[in-house]
């Protein structure tokens, strides 16, 4: 019999589930986030509409930016939680780093290598994601076509966003794939895994391409708007008739 002091208790199970659930939410949210952000490709008015929509503008007739702050705070909290939970899996001691690196290079096994990609991208996000999250939490009203473009170009955020794009899309895509094989119940696991892997790469390539085009659009807009940096976008509806 196992002595009570050595029984695991419910926490390892809860933490494992929490890691998966927080990762699932963050991964799916990042895909949606990219779709919202890319609304700039449909024009400045489209992006303005999406941004104000999340402030409840079209429900109340005026925007409540603190709604966005609240949501960002929630995402921030989830991000911190997920980072803490994922840290448990990181190689910590030098021996573990060396062993995993040697193992990965020797085995040449895709899923083993992809996990290491997740470690590196996750580590990078510890530092880069909070910069963006804090800005969005404290200045939700500065989400708009000109406002965002100014932040990207004149605010010198584009290098950070460029790196963050790769970190997020790689980490999230691999993570969502891993969630599926971790918990999934497949009648034909081999073919399911092949399909999931293909789907994962397709999503990653699509969102990376969309992200790069979107970032380029903000950079272009930011360069054009640089002489008027700081001036917010005026929606068509509120522009005074001549």
């Amino acid at each position: 019999m196992i002595p009570a002091s050595e029984k695991p208790g419910p926490w390892p199970a809860r933490l494992d589930l929490l890691q998966s659930v927080s990762g699932l939410f963050l991964g799916l949210f990042m895909w949606l986030h990219m779709l919202f952000v890319s609304s700039i490709l449909l024009g400045e008015e489209a992006m303005w509409t999406v941004a104000r929509f999340f402030e409840g503008y079209f429900f109340f007739g005026y925007g409540l930016p603190w709604l966005v702050s609240l949501f960002v705070a929630g995402v921030f909290g989830l991000f911190v939680l997920h980072a803490w939970l994922a840290l448990r899996k990181f190689p910590a001691q030098w021996r573990q780093h060396r062993v995993y690196w040697t193992h990965m290079r020797s085995l040449r096994h895709e899923d083993t290598t992809l996990w290491f990609v997740q470690v590196i991208t996750g580590f990078g996000m510890f530092f880069l994601a909070p910069v963006h999250l804090y800005l969005m939490m404290t200045h939700p009203e500065l989400i708009g076509p000109y406002e965002s473009a100014d932040r990207v170009w004149s605010g010198m955020m584009w290098p950070l966003y460029l790196v963050l794009l790769f970190l997020v899309e790689l980490h999230g895509g691999i993570g969502l794939y891993r969630l599926a094989v971790k918990w999934g119940n497949f009648s034909d696991p081999a073919s399911a895994r092949r399909k999931l892997k293909r789907l994962k790469w397709a999503f990653t390539v699509f969102f990376l391409a969309l992200g790069l085009v979107t970032l380029a659009a903000y950079i272009k807009l930011g360069i054009e708007h640089a002489p008027h940096v700081g001036e917010p976008y005026m929606p068509l509806s509120s522009r005074a008739a001549p």
Binding site: D111, R178, V181
Partner: peptide, 29 residues
Amino acid sequence: VFGCMSLLGCHDVCPKQLPLQTQIAYLRR
């Protein structure tokens, strides 16, 4: 089971082709 990171090296190298991915996921659930 909660230490398993689903790298699936086990499943892919098992010389007896045991359904390890399925069994570990089932056990995990």
